[in-house]
C-alpha cells in the first residue's frame, strides 16, 4: 500500500494562540443562541409522518365495512419475532359475507414483541394488514400492550380500495359460482 506523506502546514502564530478559533466558536454559538429553536413541543405539536412510515400494524376493512383478512396466517408465519397469533374461524352461514373464505376468530398482535419490520404487510395477499402512522403505543400492563382483533380494526379503519372482493365473490356465487 502506498503511503503518501502529507505535509502538514505549520500553524500560524494566531492559530497557535487558539484565540481566533475561540472567537469563531463563540460567534457560532451566539448565532445559534438567537436562532429559533428546533424542538418540537411534542404533545401539542405532532411530527409530520412521512409517506411509507411503518407505525403500529393494524387490520383494515374494505369500503363496505367487511373484514379483508381471510386468516390465511401468512403474516403469523412470516413474523420474525412471532408477535402475531391468529385463530382462524369460519364465517357463519347467516352472515352477509358468508362464502368459502374464512375470517379470523381472534387476531392478536403483541406490541411488546413487534419490531415494526413490515413483513406482515408485505406478505398479506389480501392487503388486510397495514403498518399505519401511529407511532406511540403505551400501556400500564403487558396485557394492554397486546392488540386484539377489535382494537386492531379500531386502529386500522377502512382502506378505500377499489377491489370489492366480497362483492365480486357474492355476485359470482349468485351466478353459479363460475370462476
Amino acid at each position: 500500500m502506498a503511503v503518501i506523506p502529507v505535509e502538514r502546514k505549520p500553524l500560524t502564530f494566531a492559530e497557535r494562540t487558539y484565540i481566533p478559533q475561540i472567537i469563531g466558536g463563540l460567534r457560532t454559538t451566539l448565532k445559534h443562541f438567537f436562532a429559533p429553536n428546533v424542538t418540537l413541543q411534542y404533545p401539542e405539536q405532532r411530527p409530520e409522518i412521512p409517506k411509507g412510515y411503518r407505525g403500529v400494524p393494524t387490520l383494515v376493512k374494505d369500503p363496505n365495512g367487511r373484514e379483508k383478512c381471510v386468516s390465511c396466517q401468512l403474516c403469523e408465519f412470516v413474523c420474525p419475532p412471532k408477535a402475531i397469533r391468529i385463530t382462524p374461524g369460519e364465517i357463519p352461514d347467516d352472515s352477509d359475507n358468508a362464502h368459502v373464505e374464512k375470517s379470523p376468530q381472534a387476531f392478536d398482535i403483541d406490541m411488546l414483541r413487534c419490531i415494526y419490520c413490515g413483513l406482515c404487510q408485505e406478505v398479506c395477499p389480501e392487503e388486510a394488514i397495514w403498518l399505519q402512522n401511529q407511532f406511540s403505543m403505551s400501556g400500564f400492563t403487558r396485557a394492554e400492550m397486546v392488540n386484539n382483533k377489535a382494537r386492531l380494526y379500531e386502529l386500522g379503519g377502512t382502506l378505500p380500495d377499489e377491489h370489492f372482493k366480497w362483492d365480486k365473490k357474492k355476485t359470482a356465487e349468485e351466478h353459479g359460482n363460475a370462476h
Partner: peptide, 10 residues
C-alpha cells in the same frame, strides 16, 4: 436555559 438556547432547544 442558555445551554438549551445555544443548542436550539427551549
Amino acid at each position: 436555559k442558555i445551554s438549551a438556547w445555544i443548542q436550539g432547544r427551549p
